[in-house]
Nucleic acid binder design. Sequence first.
DNA 1: GCGACAG
DNA 2: ATCTTGTCGC
Length: 340
Amino acid sequence: MASPDLREVADSFVAGIPNLRDQVDQLVRSIAPGSVATYGDLAKSLGDIAASRWVATYLLDPTCRVADFSHRVVRSTGEIGLHYSGSSETKTELLRAEGVVIAKETVHLETYRAQLPPIGRSLSELKAWQLDFESPAEPAFRLEDIEAIGGIDVSYGKVQAVAACSRMQVDGKTTIGTQTYVGAAEFPYITGYLAFREIPLHLNLLADMQVAGTLPDVLLVDGNGRLHPRRMGIATMLGGLAGIPTIGVAKKLICGVLRVPELRVGKWEPIVVSKDQPDEILGYAIVPHTKTKHPIYVSRGFGVDDQAMLEIVERCLNGHRSPEPIYWADRESRRHASTL
DNA sequence: GCGACAG
DNA sequence: ATCTTGTCGC
């Protein structure tokens, strides 16, 4: 299997990501004076209610390009909510001036709710992309053939972000080296869509490593793999795009439930879709050491079976909560980002 | 009122 | 993820 030019993979991936800010701007401008929409209405027009918190955050930012129209966006309860000016009274007065009746700081949504236009090429399309994503054939993974285990993470500075990949020997604990890549993270963080925020940085870093001949044989990714609402977390998508075996390692549970009531330090326990489906295992949780009560959540990314996955992660556990490659990538990317 | 979700 | 002080513990 010819390995792909990762710079080209990065460029074409980026080309397929919509600009959510532009789309929210367009939607907000479409709300006529005298009517309102909710943050959730806008998110649904983008294609996923999960974006509602980001929409609210964006519209409350004073530098937002549609700040002058953002008073027309209220909470799902009809409550006026916050305003970029810092004053809900200002927001209320702006709405009243446009003829909207407000009682008890609340709008009657049934009366004033605007009809929003549909948006093409947005979150709905990204969701479909995740559901339809076709991973290339997974080459047989042979644990005895690997020479380097990588860990990849992203930290954020004022303007730009830094991706770092640290490589360790097969013992999982001996450092070989770290490479970094600085770039912009354009796409916002929305639960379930982390891949579209961080993979552009990941792929460009991996492209640099491809040139340098330093690509690891397996990559631990800060985030989930199969343990994802659509079974397509960042680790799975990155591995499929780059053709590199990956494992997802997260610090918080995004979905699913623990199959057992309690975790024991150092013991893997399955995470399943629900108590009713105890056989569909999405990933595994483990409390890595005595110092912490917090588990990590590990799931298959691409090209590695569950048994090899757990063996690799175990080798990398060395007194920190995260496996060493991720621990170091996090440390280095954060240190670099703090200087930006 | 509560659940409630990677980075 | 980031914003943030001192503080508790190994």
